[in-house]
Nucleic acid binder design. Sequence first.
DNA 1: GACACACTGACCATTACTTCA
DNA 2: CGTGAAGTAATGGTCAGTGTG
Length: 233
Amino acid sequence: MLEYTAEMAGPFSSVTTTTTKKKKNKNKRRFSDEQIKSLESMFESETRLEPRKKLQVAKELGLQPRQVAIWFQNKRARWKSKQLEQDYSILQANYDNLAAKYESLKKEKQALVIQLQKLNDLIKKPKEEAQCCRQVTATNRNDGDKGETTVKSDSEGQLSFSMGRSEHAPGVLSDDDSAIKTDYFRPEEDPNLMSMVDPGDDSLTSPEDWRSFDSNGLFDQSNCGYPWWDFWS
DNA sequence: GACACACTGACCATTACTTCA
DNA sequence: CGTGAAGTAATGGTCAGTGTG
């Protein structure tokens, strides 16, 4: 590296030569390590120099005050872009974190929907059995009406449900009864129930889950001034 | 006090040059 | 040795703040 001497840092007329309309600084030299070190340490304490201090620094380092001012200008610009890069990587990390969380919740939701569907299928079974075995169940019409839901296992190990309901006539499951039952457990036809598993709905997870998610204040609206979701719009 | 003008300093985008792989 | 990329000193344009007539 070329050493930058005090002579090199002389007046601008000696550093630049006006050949064309646009000035070309033919003898541009980098500042010495010593000068850079000194300027860096000053920049750490204050990113802006007062005019008086600038003159003093220029004198100490053998530079033109204009050169010191320009160095601070460029330094501020470099510092700003570096800061921007850092902010970007923080945002990127937070986004990746959020995306992973979203994927995991999506899977969890899918599993729950499948589970719900299976339960729904199980609920439908007793209805079919009730239709083909009406006569048999008629003999037991007074059994099991305790206002409770019971689960029974048949000889083949299949589960079957029955719901005792005190507000209805006791006894066998009528067509109406079973219709009511399946209505209770038919999420695809129940907007309220379906809203719980709607892909666009986050209500499946507790708000605490989201609150506990540490975004390092990324989406703190008091900082941004606009909702975080606008970030992607 | 209101206005126009000149001066100054800061910021920004860009250029010109140096250094290095 | 030539070359492209990265780093950086410097330039030029613009704008805001301030002083002055």
